[in-house]
């Protein structure tokens, strides 16, 4: 602090000398400074400051506008995207629905076909069984006839006209009647 004061004291003492000291005020220089500065300010204001500041604010305006527009576009895009998403979801839902409907229909058709086939098969089976039954009865009857004839022939051969043919026939019929059915 002391040294600073000493320095100031020195400047005041020495600087204020007659031959151009540090603290001398020169009116001419003040004049020139003011003139220089004012001319500089006027020139710059006209040819530089106005265009520069205008350009800067124009650019700022443009950037602001661009950002706003971008935000708007972004919102639109988001809305569009949301709608597309919704449409996609709907489509997916429809597809799933259609698919399940189709599957259900197919199932139903398959069941129908199987059921019909079953019925058909049953019918065929039934008719075949009936046929077999009929055939069996017929065969049985035929067999009975053949057996009767054979036994008659055998008996005839054995008895050799001991009994006449009619009587014999009656006897054999009675015998057959006593045979167990089957």
């Amino acid at each position: 602090m002391n040294s600073i004061l000493a320095f100031l004291y020195f400047i005041l003492l020495y600087g204020g000398g007659e031959k151009g000291g540090l603290l001398d005020v020169n009116p001419g220089l003040i004049f020139w400074t003011v003139i220089t500065f004012i001319i500089l300010l006027l020139i710059l204001k006209k040819i530089a400051w106005m265009p520069i500041l205008k350009a800067i604010s124009e650019r700022e305006e443009k950037i602001k506008r661009d950002i706003e527009e971008a935000e708007k576009k972004f919102k639109e895009a988001e809305e569009l995207h949301r709608r597309h998403q919704q449409a996609l979801e709907e489509a997916e839902y429809r597809v799933r629905q259609l698919l399940s409907e189709g599957r259900e229909y197919a199932n139903r058709v398959r069941d129908d076909i199987i059921a019909k086939a079953n019925v058909e098969a049953q019918k065929i089976f039934e008719s075949a069984r009936l046929e077999i039954e009929n055939q069996k009865i017929e065969a049985m009857n035929e067999l009975k006839q053949i057996v009767a004839d054979l036994s008659i022939q055998v008996a005839e051969k054995i008895l050799e006209e001991t009994v006449d043919k009619d009587k014999n026939q009656k006897l054999i019929d009675q015998l057959i009647q006593k045979l167990p059915k089957g």
């Binding site: 220089t36 500065f37 001319i39 500089l40 020139i43 710059l44 040819i47 530089a48 400051w49 265009p51 520069i52 350009a55 124009e58 650019r59 443009k62």
Partner: peptide
């Protein structure tokens, strides 16, 4: 100093005529 500042500012002002950037 006035001259230098003027030149700097004229260059700057001119560059805005070409583009805003």
């Amino acid at each position: 100093a006035g001259l230098i500042v003027s030149i700097l500012f004229i260059i700057t002002a001119k560059s805005y005529k070409k583009s805003l950037v």
